[in-house]
Design a protein around this nucleic acid. Structure first.
Length: 569
RNA sequence: GCGCCUAUAGCUCAAUUGGAUAGAGCAACGGACUUCUAAUCCGUAGGUUGCAGGUUCGACUCCUGCUAGGCGUGCCA
């Protein structure tokens, strides 16, 4: 579709220039030519409202402009165009030829797994930082959503030619991990029988720490009681971080998400970069002292409040290492970085962007999106409170476990990823637990996967009947005369532009919707038209080409989402 | 108080970023398995796009003001 759009664009542009040259159109500037989707076949395959847009400038009725433009297009010179109509207020509707349909099938057949990709990104290095949960407990559901979205966005960006990497920022320094160490210490001493202890304010109550401490007590007994309290807490902190991080990594791998780079906040702090950042801010006079703390003049950047960067106890707030971390990302050469933050980080967006601006980095270099909350709901849309095996919240692993009980491990991951991806990031997501485990058409994941499996089974069935698919060059594509076949091909042709749009707008949910729509054309086709027909082998071979293309696109789309494309179900 | 997000059919959501008659699925009712997988398909219904203005040839989309819900908001990260 992209190549045809470019072709049509050039044809129209040429026609408009020709009209201007012939002094039939009085315009000084040709604006971008917009294309609008056609909702009904009557409107052709590609439509443009360009004549409406030119009306004011040309001081002419839109329909009249459209007529003039069309007279400058020679249909005979363009084999991909069949017919051009003028309709409505002045829309130019372009009907593409069968030739174009066959071209599409040739393209898909030739490109296979690469169909849908392009090189628009020109190999520019990009980075997405996502999940980045504190190493103080198991990953929660929102982290799962962030993992699915981030992973898919990386796939999409790589598909359109960027060199994008997945990065996880481990907050292994600061107050929260100190509380972690203290909490483990309490659990450890409790495991050894000490009484009257309580988890400190801001500490972690979760059972997972009890289990962890119990294991230490079981295997190493009271070894650590000999240490001074602060040494023991520090030891447990580091041991705890390593343990929880390993768990998080395991959960993510189970979910099909593998990070390329794990960055450490502690390493950033130890690198001396925070001091450099402070130095830069001081030189630029962004800092001042008040109430014993050091403040950053956020109000200079339009925010309504200043914020503390060095606390009265001398420690940095989270923002200093974070700003240093972003400076480091820039120094590593990424032309753009995207942060996916959790719903509780809204307050960070403006501040983080301002810090980046204060460091003199380009305005649009840092992009931040919030991954919104997820609610588990039942079929009636009521919130579900599931058993909380790991403490105060439901974890990603709990969710997968729960789903896997009904649909098995692989589908559990597939379903979870799809459900996390099917809605725009900015919306609150209702995760329908009952729908997720339904093996029926209401469940979009099964619907799509089933379409893929059906394609595959046609070839298996054909094999049994001794039908060997012919190469596309030997197939008579003219046999594809059914309206549904043309509709299928038109949909297949949309895939590359859907991928491109989805990647550029960071709207991963377009891919699930696209695949669902494609499946929604395929299933009815499958029901109404037989592919394998021993009495009409010409048609059979043509249809096998089409089915092969549908299968390719379904598989490519599912792969972008990190969802399996099963050969049988 | 201020900031961000959300509001579309009874329910869950789309709408290619300002284009033509706002589309799907679910829920309801009826129908299709000697035919490549019935985890599928076919048919019937639903709308003042939260409210009020504005910009435009044209608005679910942009602007202003309301209303409702969610989240955030100077020494946690």
């Amino acid at each position: 579709m992209d190549t045809i759009k470019t072709e049509v664009h050039n044809i129209l542009e040429g026609a408009i220039h020709a009209a201007v040259a012939a002094e039939e159109l009085a315009i000084s500037e040709v604006p971008d030519i917009p294309f609008s989707p056609t909702k009904t076949p009557e409107h052709g395959d590609i439509a443009t409202p360009i004549a409406l847009g030119l009306a004011k400038q040309a001081r002419m009725a839109p329909r009249k402009i459209a007529e003039i433009i069309v007279t400058h297009i020679d249909l005979d010179a363009h084999p991909n165009l069949r017919q051009i109509d003028i309709a409505g207020a002045g829309f130019i509707n372009i009907h593409l030829s069968d030739n174009w349909l066959y071209d599409t099938l040739h393209t898909i057949t030739a490109m296979q797994a690469a169909y849908g990709t392009c090189d628009k990104g020109a190999g520019k290095p990009l980075q997405i930082e996502f999940v980045s949960a504190n190493p103080t407990g198991p990953l929660n559901i929102v982290s799962g959503r962030a993992a699915a979205v981030g992973d898919t966005l990386i796939n999409l960006l790589n598909a359109i030619g960027y060199k994008a990497i997945r990065e996880y920022y481990v907050n292994d320094a600061g107050g929260q991990v100190e509380r972690l160490g203290e909490s483990i210490d309490v659990r450890y001493r409790q495991a050894l029988g000490e009484e009257g202890l309580e988890i400190p304010e801001g500490g972690y109550q979760g059972e997972y720490l009890q289990e962890f401490a119990q294991t230490i007590a079981d295997t190493e007994a009271d070894t650590y009681l000999q240490l001074k309290t602060n040494e023991r807490v520090a030891y447990f902190r580091d041991k705890g971080i390593a343990h929880i991080l390993a768990q998080q990594k395991t959960s993510l791998e189970r979910f099909g998400v593998n990070f390329d780079v794990w960055s450490s906040e502690k390493a950033v702090r130890d690198s001396g970069k925070p001091e450099e950042i402070i130095q830069v801010f001081r030189e630029k006079a962004y800092l001042y002292e008040a109430e014993g703390a050091t403040w950053f003049r956020m109000t200079d950047f339009g925010d309504d409040k200043d914020c503390v960067v060095i606390r009265s106890n001398g420690e940095y707030t989270y923002f200093v290492p974070d700003a240093a971390y972003h400076r480091d990302k820039f120094d590593r050469g990424f032309t753009k970085v995207i942060d996916l933050l959790g719903p509780d980080h809204q307050g960070h967006i403006t501040r983080l962007k301002n810090f980046v601006k204060a460091l003199g980095l380009p305005d649009d270099w840092l992009e931040i999106s919030i991954i919104q909350q997820v609610n588990l709901v039942d079929a009636e849309g009521k919130r579900v409170d599931m058993s909380k095996r790991s403490g105060q919240f439901l974890t990603l692993d709990d969710l997968i476990d729960e789903l896997a009980e009904t649909v098995g491990e692989q589908f559990a991951v597939d379903v979870a990823r799809y459900f996390f991806l099917m809605r725009a990031n900015s919306t609150h997501l209702d995760f329908n637990m009952e729908l997720a485990v339904t093996h029926a058409s209401e469940n979009p994941v099964f619907y799509i996967q089933y379409a893929h499996a059906r394609c595959y089974s046609i070839f298996e069935q054909g094999d049994e009947q001794g039908i060997t698919p012919k190469p596309i060059e030997e197939a008579s594509l003219k046999q594809l005369t059914e309206p549904m076949e043309h509709e299928l091909i038109r949909k297949l042709a949309e895939f590359p532009s859907t991928v491109l749009l989805s990647a550029e707008t960071r709207e991963a949910h377009r891919i699930p919707h696209y695949l669902y729509e494609l499946s929604g054309i395929f299933h009815p086709y499958y029901n109404q038209h037989r592919v394998l027909d021993l009495t009409d082998m010409e048609k059979t071979h043509a249809r096998l080409i089409l089915i092969q293309c549908v299968q390719s696109v379904l598989k490519n789309g599912l792969t972008l989402l990190g969802i399996s494309a099963p050969e049988s179900m």
